[in-house]
Amino acid sequence: MPELPEVETVKRTLNNLITGKTIAQVQVRLPRIIQKPDDIQLFEVLLQGQTIESIERRGKFLRFILTDYVMVSHLRMEGRYGVYDTSDPLELHTHVLFRFTDDSELRYKDVRQFGTMHLFPRGEELTQPPLHKLGLEPLDEGFTFEAFRDRIAHRSTKIKPLLLNQEYIVGIGNIYVDESLFLAGIHPEREASSLSKKELMLLHAAIIKTLADSVEVGGSSIKSYVNGQGEIGMFQHQLNIYGRQSQACNKCGTEIYKTVVGGRGTHICPVCQPLKRQRIRKKLEK
Rank of each mutant, 00 (worst) to 15 (best):
V170C: 09
P37L: 08
A205T: 02
G265V: 01
S220R: 04
I222A: 06
D178E: 10
K158Q: 14
R32E: 05
T101G: 05
V72E: 08
L163M: 11
L90C: 12
I256N: 04
K258E: 11
S156C: 09
S246W: 13
L134C: 00
P121Y: 14
E91L: 12
P130T: 07
L136G: 03
H204K: 11
L195I: 00
C269P: 01
V215E: 06
L181D: 03
Y257A: 06
L62G: 01
G49D: 01
S220L: 04
Q25Y: 15
Q35F: 13
T101F: 14
Q35Y: 13
I175Y: 05
H118I: 00
Y176F: 14
L4I: 10
F61R: 00
K109T: 12
A153G: 02
L46K: 10
H154Q: 11
E56W: 07
H267K: 02
G49F: 10
P161N: 09
I232G: 07
Y81D: 00
C272L: 11
N240A: 15
L134H: 01
K209T: 07
E191A: 15
E91R: 11
K197T: 10
L162I: 00
N165V: 01
L134P: 00
T157S: 15
P138N: 06
A205W: 04
K276A: 13
L139H: 07
L30M: 09
K21E: 04
R190G: 04
N16F: 13
L62I: 01
R12C: 04
K197S: 10
E125K: 04
R279C: 03
E105G: 10
G233K: 04
I222T: 00
R32D: 05
L195R: 00
D103L: 06
G263D: 08
G265E: 01
Y108Q: 11
H267G: 00
L134W: 02
K276M: 08
T9C: 09
F235G: 01
I241L: 07
P31K: 03
L126I: 00
G79F: 03
Y176L: 05
F43L: 07
Y69E: 06
E44F: 13
R107F: 15
K286C: 01
